[in-house]
Design a protein around this nucleic acid. Structure first.
Lengths: 154, 154
DNA sequence: GCGGAATTGTATGCTCTACTAACGATTAGG
DNA sequence: CCTAATCGTTAGTAGAGCATACAATTCCGC
């Protein structure tokens, strides 16, 4: 008991009040992720790329010839999810698949010229997006935040 | 130039290496959110409740009679998304809708007895989930993390 | 070397979340 | 009183994640 009724409009608690949810770390991660996701989507509206697609382009650029399973491992995606990402990027001619010469089970992934170009544009958008994010923190805080988040995803 | 080939299996970089992605705050928030989401889903497998559903139950419990639009505002969901959440919870008889007496446009949301019970169980699962999360941090760190995440979602 | 187990890619189908656009009902403001 | 704004609702679209099943390939024990 004690929770005040809101049937009338004399709301006694401010609109941002989240009650007991306020102290839950997981809840804040969820909201923060949502906010970042929304801003990302706006920033990348012109490029029409999602976070996952950009991450995949980026990783394939840094690890040319990487296999799908390895790409998925680093981005914490399962095989099926990785497939749909790569399918879309291949359909837009940003990426191509080749059978690996060392292991015929694997596909080796490479960026096409169009993919390199798209990634270059994406990097500029990411810089902008990150600037929006980092404006809230000092350099030390940003570093600490990244380090703590890394502890969560191992 | 510079990026080592992975066509062969002499991978010169460790499997956790994310290259330039490492420094991107948004990327770490994404991965952390994924990890939290996965653990949450495991923890709540028996209850068959999602993060959003639990958050909604919790908020309606703290603000009985809250309108859908207000619920959505606090959880950063639009009206359509809020609808589907409330629909599911109502279908499982955890929540009921009533027309607001003060504003006939609004629905006033209340937990049913089943909803109260489900929330009680959910709270125990959340405690477990949060303990898993908090094990990585000191009390001070956890507080700082929450505060920094709050800066992101305002 | 051979046969069974594990790995990788692929296809299919389901779910949750989120968004847009439209519409009707109700309320609020000039 | 009439118009604009708000709220709920429905329908459609899309990304992301997961499970399952299957084929091809490789690996390992014998």
């Amino acid at each position: 008991m004690g929770a005040p009724a809101l049937t009338d409009d004399k709301a006694p608690r401010p609109p941002g009040d989240l009650g007991g949810l306020e102290g839950i770390i997981g809840f804040h991660i969820r909201l923060a992720h949502g906010a970042v996701y929304r801003h990302f989507t706006e920033t990348f509206a012109d490029l029409d790329l999602t976070q996952k697609q950009v991450s995949a382009l980026w990783l394939v650029s840094e690890f040319p010839g990487i296999s799908q399973i390895e790409l998925g491992r680093r981005l914490r995606m399962d095989r099926a999810t990785t497939m749909t990402i790569v399918n879309r990027l291949q359909a837009r001619a940003f990426m191509r698949r080749e059978r690996s010469t060392s292991d015929a089970r694997k596909q080796a992934l490479y960026l096409t010229d169009g993919g390199v170009e798209a990634l270059a544009k994406a990097r500029r958008c990411i810089a902008q997006h990150e600037a929006w994010l980092k404006a809230r923190f000092t350099a030390g805080e940003a570093e600490k935040l990244v380090e703590m988040l890394a502890r969560i995803h191992e």
